[in-house]
């Protein structure tokens, strides 16, 4: 189903190694090419797995090809055009729309991770907060306690500098090995004004908890902790 492409980098032809021996036998540089085998999986089977939910809202998730994408352009109505009486072209203008439960993020790696999202609406290479488009994302938390108390968590731009995630409760965006952050949804929180179309990339980042070395303790998946609000 997942149509896994397999990329095996060519082995052999290794030795472009050059050793610059400097008289004494000590070398300062060795360069040796080695073969690397990399398997690239479709999103649903990847180490960081992105899978459409079983909600009807997964109809907004485009599964063509190996990488999922989100399409809020009326394409969900194309498969069942007889259900809808009129044209379906997109979000309502000048409205506030929330579309929950688009896809799940599952940690199929070997380390516990923080998951967050970045976006770069104007494509200038920087990730802005609070842009005019007002597109943001939220999800359920893999931490059962947080999920029960708060019901979900914002995902956008919760990491802008080093150290623990900027998220007020890092445990809320922690996904331990084998766990799932359920139901990532999109929030069109701003008034879209005269915008008629929006094409942008979102970046989903998973970063190992062990990368954060400030010594802060992060609550584990089912731990309870103090909420700051």
């Amino acid at each position: 189903m997942t149509n896994r492409r397999k990329f095996i980098a060519g082995l052999g032809a290794l030795a472009t190694g050059s050793a610059a021996a400097m008289g004494t036998g000590a070398f300062s540089s060795v360069q040796a090419d080695r073969g690397i085998t990399v398997e690239v999986a479709g999103d649903s089977a990847a180490l960081l797995s992105l899978e459409p939910t079983d909600s009807p809202n997964a109809d907004y998730v485009n599964r063509d090809g190996d990488a999922l994408s989100l399409q809020f352009d009326g394409s969900h109505a194309e498969q069942s055009a007889d259900v809808y009486s009129g044209d379906v072209n997109g979000l309502n203008a000048d409205s506030f729309t929330t579309i929950n439960n688009l896809f799940d993020i599952t940690n199929r790696g070997t380390q516990d991770i923080f998951v967050y999202m970045l976006q770069d609406p104007d494509g200038d290479g920087t990730n802005e907060l609070g842009t005019d488009t007002g597109l943001s994302f939220a999800a359920g938390s893999a931490n059962d306690y947080y999920q029960e108390e708060v019901g979900g968590t914002g995902l956008l731009n919760t990491q802008t500098k080093s150290g623990l995630p900027d998220h007020p409760i890092p445990a809320a965006i922690r996904v331990d090995v084998g766990n799932t952050m359920p139901g990532v949804g999109a929030i069109f929180g701003g008034y879209l004004g005269d915008i008629t179309e929006l094409d942008q990339d979102i970046t989903i980042v998973a970063e190992a908890v062990s990368e954060y070395e400030r010594g802060d303790e992060v609550a584990a998946n089912d731990e309870e902790f103090e909420l700051p609000y």
Binding site: L70, T196, E197, I204
Partner: peptide, 13 residues
């Protein structure tokens, strides 16, 4: 660390 970029396409009707 994994960073995956995905496309979002939005039309306003």
């Amino acid at each position: 660390r994994v960073s995956a970029q995905r496309a979002v396409h939005v039309d306003i009707g």
